[in-house]
Amino acid sequence: MKALVIKKLKKSYGDFLALKGIDLEVEEGEVFALLGPNGAGKTTLIRILAEGLGYDSGEILVFGEPLTKGTARLIGYAPQESVAYDLLTVEENLHFYADLYDAPRERVRKLISEFSLPAKKKARELSGGFKRRLNLAIALLYEPRLLILDEPSAGLDVPSRRELWSLIRKLREEGRTILLATHYMEEAEALADRVAIINEGRIIAVGTPDELKSLAAEESVIHVEGILKGTELVREEFPRTIEREGVLRIGVEEAKTALPRVVELLVEAGSEIRTIRVEEPTLEDVFLKLTGRGLE
């Protein structure tokens, strides 16, 4: 059964068209990642699904039923920002939302235990990782069949991110359908069964991570690190070039011919190259190939 079907969904803010006709299907029990840069339309789409934000046209079906205030209860939502009240304890926050959603109070104790949450600690005293866990627990209070996670690990340190990922994997093992919005390709690759790439309000590709990577299969990616100068010259010759945190990633058709030319351009511009390697493409490379820009 399809957990979610979206057909020709359009949404505008004044003159700005945020969603330009989204078509999407999420199978029950899968982890589906919505991958795209900031401003691609992910949050708008999620807010339509989880917060009742109005839309201009299109159709949304949740487990076969049109999305209404009633069927919205099938959806649990953990936004990026904490929805916990700072002055309330973890337990009080969960009780509040349980009452709001008319969920059984026994769920609170179960979720506190499952997510190893400090029940008596005030929300403002929690670390970033625990705040995300609390958000997740709140979203699961009324046992929704579809769980939507918006940038679940944004801003978390590596250990907290790993812990959160293992929680998400556990939820998947329990059979829950998860729609994951992220701009971290590692997150999408690590968690998702299928990925939709969204850019400027359109879905530009859907498939498993491997299928998507095959879109760029004929490509290789050259990674260059060091004190780099003349990157504009490289970008002029190789348009699928992005620079991030001192690393230059260049998508090329054939590494064997491109590599000497890249080195030549950089060295002539006065770069000091520390390392250089050729890798298989990632989802980010796919995105780069499809859109001509990076995921940031």
Partner: peptide, 11 residues
Amino acid sequence: HGTLRRIAASP
């Protein structure tokens, strides 16, 4: 704080 959106989305 973003909690009103959450409350508005609830029953």
